[in-house]
Nucleic acid binder design. Sequence first.
DNA 1: AAGATAAGCAACCGCCAACTG
DNA 2: TCAGTTGGCGGTTGCTTATCT
Length: 293
Amino acid sequence: MDVYKRGFISETSRNEEEMELRKGPWTEEEDSMLKAHVNIHGEGRWNAVARLSGLRRTGKSCRLRWLNYMRPEIKRGNISLEEQLLILELHSRWGNRWSKIAQHLPGRTDNEIKNYWRTRVQKQAKQLNCDVNSKQFKDAMRYVWIPRLVERIRASSESPSSQPSTTTKTTYNDCISNISSSQMSYANASGSVQVDPSLLPELSGTSSDSLDTQVSSVSDLTDCYNPQSLSNYLHKGLGLEKEGAATWGRDEEFQATEEHSNGLLVGGGESSMDTVWNEENVWFLQQQLHDGI
DNA sequence: AAGATAAGCAACCGCCAACTG
DNA sequence: TCAGTTGGCGGTTGCTTATCT
């Protein structure tokens, strides 16, 4: 087996363990053994953990199981609106740097974020018939989905009954403090779109790690969004020609054909998982991408 | 009700850089 | 200096569950 070639198991114990090395899903018993060992000896030295704990697993497997599943601080369940926003925002800046993104979402693992991206976001890119790394899709995220998500978060905060949870909000407040207000501004009060060029990977000239030191508040993010500016941007900034093809407003639903007019910006009932990536957004973006971008 | 398909996610793989003796 | 070891990362696979026909 390949793990032996790569040195995960010592030469001397190779033969005796070769037949017993376990793979696949972890059992409750294995979880207990791993937890007990880590509680006593702490994290790290995973090959030693694998040997000394009695687990017939590679050190890598032990490490992965602990980091992605068994750590006490692991948060399980749906990814909140705030977390979705943060993922989209940070991915636009850092790309597939999952572990780096995960550092800003306490309790979430890089694996979980990666899975979220691949199952939700990339699926939408596919439906839009554009590459997830294409400028079109990045623009769609940056100027359509992210502002919309911001709006939903604000709507949630204004109606306590539909607020996701205090824990997720705290998480977001904590995490967002590393993001500058200018970077998180998509439109100002006058309606013009503000986008920090450093947010655009294709325009970024230097490493963005230095941005970590910048600070902002959530209010900067939530107070500045003007839905009409998004429409303006889609028509002007992204080069969409057809005025009236679709409009958004704070108090109005997305106006399109009747059979496609349900489900946008309707607060409350739906789960956080299907808020950003609903069919209406996809349909609308397909039209815009097809028409003019 | 049953089979097919899609979605979600845990776990593994391969590569690489840092560490160590 | 160098080879072996370890841990971390991103990509991928495959199993389970949900949804559709």
